[in-house]
Design a protein around this nucleic acid. Structure first.
Length: 436
RNA sequence: GGAGGGGUUCCCGAGUGGCCAAAGGGAUCAGACUGUAAAUCUGACGCGUAAGCUUCGGUGGUUCGAAUCCACCCCCCUCCA
C-alpha cells in the first residue's frame, strides 16, 4: 500500500472513472474524508456484487476515511434507468427498516461501525426524500437540472434511443433524487466522494454538479468497473441464481465453490478486488498460475480468502471439508462420522425412509431442475439417460434404480451427484433418537 | 384525443390458415475433452415413458383446422394534438 489510495485502487483494477483525479488525490491525502456508496434494499441479503463497493469502502476506512452506506429506501422504489427495466416493487416501511438492519449487520463484517470519527454509517434516503413535497422538489432541486443535460447522459439516452422501451418520467427523475442524496450527505456528513459502479457515472456527476450549485462546494466521483466474467456473462450468478452473503441463503460451501470455480482469466483480477492480499502475493499467484494452471493456485487462494472474509474461519473450514470430500475422490475413505458431519456442514440434505427410486429422489432433492427452473420427473429421467447421475461416486444409468439401506454407505448415506459439481446427501431416517 | 407500429416459448427474434410445440441465435442443463478453468464438439431445452395434453397479450368468433383471419378489450412504442 502506498500513501496514495487512488493509485492503490487503480492497481487493483478498481477504478473505471474518477473526477478530477489530481484534485481527488490531494483531497484524500489531506485529511479524513467521507465517502458513500448506495445499496439497493430490494433483496433479502447483500450479494457478492455488493462486495465490490463494500470492500472498497473498507479500503477507504482502513486509510482513515469514513464510509457511508446509503440504502435506497426511496430510490429503490423507483428504479434506475440504467438498470433493468422491470417494475420495482414498493417496499413497505418495515421492509426497508429490516433491510437496513440486515445491511448493517452484514456490512459490519467488513466495516467498523464503532471506531470514533471514521465509524461507518448506514443511512436511508427515504429519511429526507419521503417527506419532501412536490413543490419543494421542483422549486429547490429541479430548477438546477437542465433537461438538455440529463437527456445527454448515457443512461438516459440509451433508453430514449431504444424504441421498444422508452423511459418514464419517474425513472427519468431518478438521477435528480440520487443527486439530492449526495447533497444531503454533503451537508450532514461533509461527504465529498461518491463511489459506485461505472453505470452510475452519470448520476454521480449530476450530484457533483448539484452540490456545486446548491452548496458551492467541490465533490468527487469514483467509479469501479462493472464486473463481467471473462466469458461476458453476468457476474455473481451461478447455478440457481445469485450468490448471497447470508449463510442461510448461500451456504459457505456453495459460496466457496463459486470462487473456486473462477476462470483463469478472472481469478487473478478478482484477487485484487475481493481480497486484501498485497500486490506481491497476488503477483506470486499470477506467476504460479501461469506456470501450472492445473494447480489452480489463484482460485484456491481466492476462495479461501473471500470465504474467510465473509463467513469466518469456521465457515471456511466447513466449506473446505465438504469440498475435499466431494471433489478429492475420497468418497470411499469417508467415515460414518464424516458423512454426518457433511450434513451439519451445509451440504444439501434430504431425509428418506426406506426405499425410494432414484428418479423420485432426484426430484425430491431438487437436482432434477429443468433449464427453465422446474423440477420434473422427465428431467430426472433425462439426466439418468444422459449419464449425468452418480450415487456414491458410481455412474447410474438405470432408470429404475432404487435407493435403500443395502446400497447405502454405512447403511444410511447416499451421495447423489448430478453432473460434476452438484452434490446432495440422502440420509436414511433411523430409529436412533440421537439423530435428526 | 388522432395516425401509425408492436405484444410469439427464459431473452432476442422468425413465423401471416394445415407440413407449428413453433426456424435461428443467446442463456441454461447435461455429455466428451480438460485442470472443479476457458475454448471447442455433442445432446437436451412446455409437461408427459407414451398415447396425448397445455402454449404464441386477454376474451369471444369464423373455420374440418388459427400463433396466423374477424370483433372487442388490455399493454408498449413513435409521431401529431
Amino acid at each position: 500500500m502506498t500513501d496514495n489510495l487512488l493509485e492503490d485502487f487503480r492497481q487493483l483494477g478498481l477504478v473505471a472513472q474518477a473526477s478530477s483525479e489530481e484534485a481527488l488525490e490531494t483531497h484524500l491525502r489531506s485529511g479524513s474524508r467521507t465517502v458513500y456508496a448506495g445499496f439497493d434494499p430490494t433483496a433479502d441479503s447483500l450479494h457478492i456484487g455488493n462486495l465490490v463497493p463494500l470492500l472498497a469502502l473498507r479500503r477507504f476506512q482502513l486509510a482513515g476515511h469514513r464510509p457511508i452506506l446509503l440504502v435506497g429506501g426511496a430510490t429503490g422504489m423507483i428504479g434506475d434507468p440504467g438498470g433493468r427495466n422491470t417494475e420495482r416493487e414498493l417496499k413497505t416501511r418495515e421492509q426497508v427498516i429490516r433491510s437496513l438492519d440486515r445491511i448493517r449487520a452484514q456490512a459490519s463484517r467488513f466495516l467498523d461501525f464503532d471506531c470514533g470519527d471514521n465509524s461507518a454509517v448506514v443511512v436511508d434516503n427515504a429519511q429526507w426524500t419521503e417527506s419532501m413535497t412536490v413543490i419543494d422538489f421542483l422549486r429547490d432541486i429541479g430548477k438546477h437540472f437542465s433537461v438538455n443535460a440529463m437527456i445527454a447522459k448515457e443512461s438516459v439516452r440509451r433508453r430514449i434511443e431504444d424504441d421498444s422501451i422508452g423511459i418514464s418520467y419517474t425513472e427519468f427523475s431518478y438521477m435528480i433524487l440520487q443527486s439530492y442524496d449526495f447533497v444531503v450527505l454533503n451537508r450532514r456528513y461533509d461527504c465529498t466522494i461518491q463511489m459506485g459502479g461505472s453505470d452510475q457515472w452519470g448520476n454521480i456527476t449530476a450530484g457533483i454538479d448539484l452540490i456545486r450549485r446548491m452548496e458551492g462546494k467541490q465533490a468527487y466521483a469514483l467509479t469501479y468497473p462493472l464486473l463481467t466474467r471473462s466469458d461476458g456473462s453476468k457476474f455473481g450468478k451461478s447455478t440457481g441464481g445469485a450468490i448471497w452473503l447470508d449463510a442461510s441463503m448461500t451456504s459457505p460451501y456453495a459460496f466457496y465453490q463459486f470462487w473456486r470455480n473462477a476462470s483463469d482469466d478472472d481469478a487473478v483480477k478478482w484477487l485484487g478486488i475481493f481480497t486484501f492480499l498485497d500486490s506481491v502475493e497476488i503477483e506470486r499467484l499470477a506467476t504460479a498460475m501461469a506456470q501450472d494452471p492445473g494447480a489452480r493456485a489463484a482460485q484456491i487462494t481466492l476462495a479461501d480468502e473471500v470465504t474467510r472474509l465473509v463467513h469466518g474461519d469456521e465457515g471456511l473450514a466447513t466449506a473446505r471439508r465438504i469440498s475435499e470430500a466431494m471433489f478429492a475422490n475420497s468418497l470411499g475413505s469417508l467415515e460414518a462420522d464424516d458423512l454426518s458431519q457433511l450434513a451439519l456442514d451445509g451440504l444439501p440434505v434430504t431425509m428418506s425412509s426406506g426405499q425410494v427410486t432414484l428418479m423420485e429422489m432426484l426430484v425430491e432433492s431438487g437436482l432434477a431442475v429443468t433449464p427453465r427452473g422446474e423440477v420434473t420427473l422427465g428431467q430426472a429421467r433425462k439426466l439418468i439417460k444422459g449419464n449425468a447421475v452418480s450415487i456414491n461416486g458410481i455412474k447410474i444409468t438405470d432408470e429404475d434404480y432404487v435407493l435403500d439401506a443395502d446400497n447405502a454407505l454405512f447403511g444410511r448415506y447416499h451421495i447423489l451427484q448430478k453432473g460434476k459439481k452438484n452434490h446432495h446427501l440422502v440420509v436414511q431416517k433411523s430409529k436412533d433418537p440421537g439423530f435428526h
